[in-house]
């Protein structure tokens, strides 16, 4: 009896081991985990992030002054808490520049993402190997070969990489120096960066399209332009819109922050309040930015579900 059960348990151990050996795993994931662990360990050991500094007496007194005094809306500092004083303070801030800055942030990101969307509609087909070749969706023998089309695809992709790898902030800096402080530098900086991203995502979407409808239309003599505008783009549109809204959400976030460089979005007033050391107002404006982001995320989520 005991011999029998020990055989059974040995069997079970073997079966578990078998399961363990055949479990889904990936070398790449493991390598990534190891790589990240290396970075993290190095970061913890390096003296760059002086962690204990955060708990020094000076930092603590800074923090307690910030929480106990600076953060409290100034009408409430001496007189104690009252709803009417608080709402009057918030209302004044909203009227003097809060609402206007929220609207400016919103419109800046709308215009930026619309420009980026249009530009990437133009560039995405040029970066797709399947469309930009000698005979799109035709006989495979004629598709390959070094020709001008390959150069076109390559150029488009390299350009897209450069556009998106340079941070928006660098574009904004350059454009502010060139154009002066209107809303344009921020709009164009966001548009350039997002054109790079949307072009890459768009090209990938077109390349991953189901080939059957495209090939059959190519077989009955559809031209490249017809294939691109009448078949590929409509088929890719749902994905395009998905990416468009995803980038719109990030645009709102970046437009808020880019204002700190001197353009009238929320960031401008946040930097302004920071300069005057009115931290109560600064945190209020940061919270306004959060509200704007939550609202636009909600709208974009609803629209995405509606068109799915």
């Amino acid at each position: 009896m005991s011999a029998h059960s020990s055989i059974e348990s040995a069997d079970r151990t073997l079966a578990i081991r078998d399961l363990y050996r055949t479990r889904p795993r990936s070398r790449l994931v493991r390598a990534s985990v190891v790589l990240f662990a290396f970075f993290a360990l190095y970061a913890f050991l390096s003296p760059d992030v002086a962690w204990s500094d955060l708990f020094s007496a000076r930092r603590r007194s800074n923090l307690s002054r910030f929480v106990d005094h600076d953060l409290i809306p100034y009408p409430l500092r001496d007189s104690g808490f009252s709803w009417s004083a608080l709402t009057e303070w918030a209302g004044n801030l909203m009227r003097s520049h809060g609402l206007e800055a929220m609207a400016a942030t919103f419109w800046i990101s709308v215009l930026a993402i619309v420009i980026a969307g249009l530009a990437s509609l133009l560039f995405a087909p040029l970066g797709a190997h399947t469309l930009a070749n000698r005979e799109p969706y035709g006989s495979s023998a004629k598709r390959s070969g070094h020709d001008a089309w390959r150069a076109l695809v390559g150029t488009t992709r390299v350009a897209a990489v450069l556009l998106r790898a340079i941070p928006e902030y660098v574009w904004a800096f350059l454009l502010l120096a060139m154009l002066g402080p209107t809303a344009w530098p921020v709009i164009i900086a966001l548009a350039i960066h997002n054109t790079g991203i949307l072009t890459r995502l768009g090209s990938e979407t077109i390349e991953n399209l189901e080939v059957a409808p495209l090939e059959s239309l190519a077989a009955v003599g559809a031209s490249r332009r017809q294939l691109a505008t009448l078949v590929a783009l409509p088929l890719a549109l749902p994905r395009f819109l998905l990416y468009f809204f995803y980038r719109f959400e990030t645009c709102i976030r970046e437009a808020t922050v880019l204002g700190m460089l001197g353009v009238v979005s929320l960031g401008y007033w946040i930097a302004d309040a920071r300069g005057r050391q009115n931290y109560d107002e600064m945190v209020f404006l940061v919270a306004l930015g959060a509200v704007l982001i939550l609202l636009t995320d909600l709208v974009s989520y609803t629209v995405r579900r509606w068109i799915r």
């Binding site: 992030v49 955060l54 910030f66």
Partner: peptide
């Protein structure tokens, strides 16, 4: 604003 400039 809360701590002053510090990498942390």
């Amino acid at each position: 604003a809360a701590f002053g400039i510090s990498p942390a």
